[in-house]
Design a protein around this nucleic acid. Structure first.
Lengths: 222, 222
DNA sequence: CACTCATTCAAACACTACATTGAACGAAAA
DNA sequence: TTTTCGTTCAATGTAGTGTTTGAATGAGTG
């Protein structure tokens, strides 16, 4: 009878175990962008192929990811939106309770107050009015797999050469993979150095995509 | 630069690690009820005192719980509501993706459809109208530390002897520690055998307490 | 049908986590 | 001060985890 409670908690712990390794969290973060092959995941995370594969299989065993074959590649995806939500809550709690995280984040935001983030609502509003240019700093593949409406895709390395694609009179809102993705911080910092008005979107693409669904739900069933 | 992302994920993983052990999750579950001493937690979880203490210290290191002294006891509490939320999401995801969990749960709900749970909203409504009796089946200490308004406290072992405290004409709504706490299932099953109208509350006390706050927020800032 | 190559498996290693034991601490009580 | 007793610390054995290596699989491709 009380064995039931223990067994149940052990099952929950199986899931928790998946969140207990930084590399695995990184893989989940990349998977939150969309479907990816083992090879892609390995190269972007810097892990060996075999190692990546094993992590992915563990994730699949607890049902956090699904796999399907496409040609000679096996493509993995997150098993559902709730997984993104789980990661989000995990990060939120970490930010709220782990002093180390707060320090790390605030250190990266060198001029933290000057990089005030933009909320999704505000972005939608101003984007509709044509007041802002949305900048996606992720790699082209990820951009191709999905991006914010009207977003321009320029990676950090290309940024300097392609500044002419960005308007000087409008504000630039940069985003990347997630709330903690450094790329957008970097981009905003560099753009400001060049005299642009730039801010970063609070969320990354996965969070935005998730929020979009609930926005649509609101409209359909008000 | 990419070291930052790894370090950050390692920090998140520290938190995930806390969710990777069934006993620790059990401790967190008890702590979600309210403040508890090491001794209490050890006895209710069946762990040794030393072992309990060590788990608690790990939890404290990552800021998930706080400790304060009261007399000769040291009392632990969850560090915030977001921790409850994290556990909630973890369980939800597990229920949604781990086949094992679904099986276990459905096995316990022997007559699953006949034990249809009541939602918090419905309970509030009917409780206000005096249509239901609320039954708290947790141990008296937990009841004393906080319970639903108007709830009667009878544990499972006492239930048979104290049936006269329950009205036969009104419906009885039983609840206990959490959504997966078996006590309330047991209580409902036994009450029905005795001819009572009985159902169980979907949530447990921690979830109810959490939801209460947002209910209050709604009223204050509508 | 044989070949290719992305992915998985299997074995081995160092490393970390969990539970138990008994001793040590230290605040409250006597 | 001395005693008491919740709690914590330290040390140990056992089991599990993460990574690397090289071999094996097996679905596409020529």
């Amino acid at each position: 009878m009380s064995g039931f409670k223990q067994d149940l908690n052990d099952q929950f712990a199986r899931l928790g175990k998946m969140l207990s390794n930084g590399r695995r969290l990184e893989l989940l973060e990349y998977l939150a962008q969309g479907e990816r092959s083992v090879e892609q995941l390995a190269s972007v995370s810097g892990l060996s192929i075999a190692n990546t594969s094993q992590h992915l299989q563990q994730l699949r065993q607890v049902g956090l990811v699904n796999a399907r074959r496409d040609g000679k590649h096996i493509l993995y995806t997150l098993a559902g939106d709730d997984v993104v939500r789980l990661l989000e809550v995990l990060r939120t709690v970490a930010e709220g309770h782990l002093a180390e995280v707060r320090e790390m984040v605030s250190k990266v935001l060198t001029a933290r107050d000057s990089l005030e983030p933009v909320q999704a609502d505000e972005l939608l509003e101003r984007s509709r009015l044509g007041l802002v240019t949305v900048l996606d700093v992720r790699p082209p593949e990820e951009y191709a797999a999905g991006h914010l409406p009207g977003a321009i895709n320029i990676t950090l390395t290309e940024l300097e050469q392609q500044l002419d694609r960005l308007p000087v009179d409008k504000e630039v809102i940069a985003y990347c993979r997630g709330s903690y993705c450094v790329l957008s911080f970097e981009a905003v910092a560099r753009l400001r150095e060049r005299g642009f008005q730039a801010r970063r979107l609070e969320q990354g693409y996965p969070e935005w995509k998730l929020a979009e669904k609930t926005r649509n739900d609101r409209e359909v069933t008000p």
